[in-house]
């Protein structure tokens, strides 16, 4: 959800009462029921709505894009094929031959996050990846899948993953807990990276959008500052697009790297 528009919508009366004296950067992340009375009764928030929209868009891209099944693809089919091939090469390059088994998982994660991030850039839309609850759920899921794959492949041998090679036995009681903590910290680092990037970007958008209004209403020389804030916001939108792609890519590639560790162990 973008900038001043959301602030003005959510707290219109309050902002007017305060005389534009405060920057309200966080109310854009507030969850509100969507879809009227039905959504209200089942607590279907706008975050859920955006998740559904994101999934439907991914499905639509693949479904409509691949429906012609032409030898020489049209634009949409080329896009759908490119999506497929990008993730496929990501899987095989990082995980190896077995990576093809994990293609559906990585594909879903990558495009769900990517479309969620992109949708968040539109004004009045909600960025569901800016909630730690969402990203933590996804990274927990990845962590559990990775651990199960490792145990299924290697059995109890999996626990040798926590024993670094070429280390004197005296140091092992110290190093094994460190390795386990490092392994567990993947959950936090994977989720916080995505969440922090999306949230920081949207807070910045909101802050500069508030500057536009505050300086614009103050008048005089501050019109210049207002114009500068507006141009900064334009640049930030472009930057947000970069961050959206990059963070989805990072999430997917790290999932692949973790799966490589699980499949090959060391």
């Amino acid at each position: 959800m973008c900038g001043a528009s959301s602030g003005a919508r959510n707290r219109g009366t309050q902002v007017a009462a305060e005389g534009h004296s405060s920057i309200d950067a966080l109310s854009q992340f507030k969850l509100e029921p969507a879809l009227g009375a039905i959504g209200h009764s089942v607590n279907f928030t706008q975050a859920n709505l955006m998740m559904v929209v994101s999934s439907v868009l991914v499905l639509a891209l693949l479904w409509i894009g691949m429906s012609p099944r032409a030898m020489v693809p049209g634009r949409l089919q080329a896009a759908a094929e490119m999506c497929y091939e990008t993730v496929m090469s990501m899987c095989t390059d990082q995980i190896g031959h077995e990576g093809k088994k994990f293609f559906p998982l990585v594909f879903c994660l990558f495009f769900f996050i990517l479309f969620g991030n992109f949708l968040g850039v539109f004004p009045y839309f909600f960025t569901f990846t800016s909630h730690i609850a969402v990203t933590l759920a996804m990274s927990l899921f990845v962590f559990i899948v990775v651990t199960f794959v490792a145990i299924e492949r290697h059995g109890l041998h999996f626990f040798s993953y926590f024993v670094p090679k070429g280390v004197p036995a005296v140091l092992l009681p110290l190093l094994v807990p460190i390795e386990i903590l490092s392994y567990l910290s993947r959950i936090i680092s994977l989720s916080v990276r995505l969440f922090a990037n999306m949230m920081a970007g949207h807070v910045m958008l909101e802050v500069f959008a508030a500057f536009i209004i505050m300086m614009g209403t103050a008048g005089g020389l501050l019109y210049v500052g207002s114009a500068i804030s507006l141009s900064v916001n334009v640049i930030l939108i472009g930057f947000e697009l970069l961050v959206a792609t990059l963070q989805a890519y990072v999430f997917a590639i790290l999932t692949c790297i973790y799966l490589h560790d699980a499949v090959h162990l060391h």
């Binding site: 095989t92 190896g96 031959h97 970069l242 990059l246 590639i253 790297i257 490589h260 560790d261 090959h264």
Partner: peptide, 21 residues
């Protein structure tokens, strides 16, 4: 050979590839 599953790929360094970030 890696692509056909005849060899295991080298261990990723843990660094995130792609210089864009």
């Amino acid at each position: 050979r890696i692509k056909q599953g005849l060899e295991t790929p080298p261990k990723p360094t843990g660094k995130i590839p792609g210089g864009a970030g």
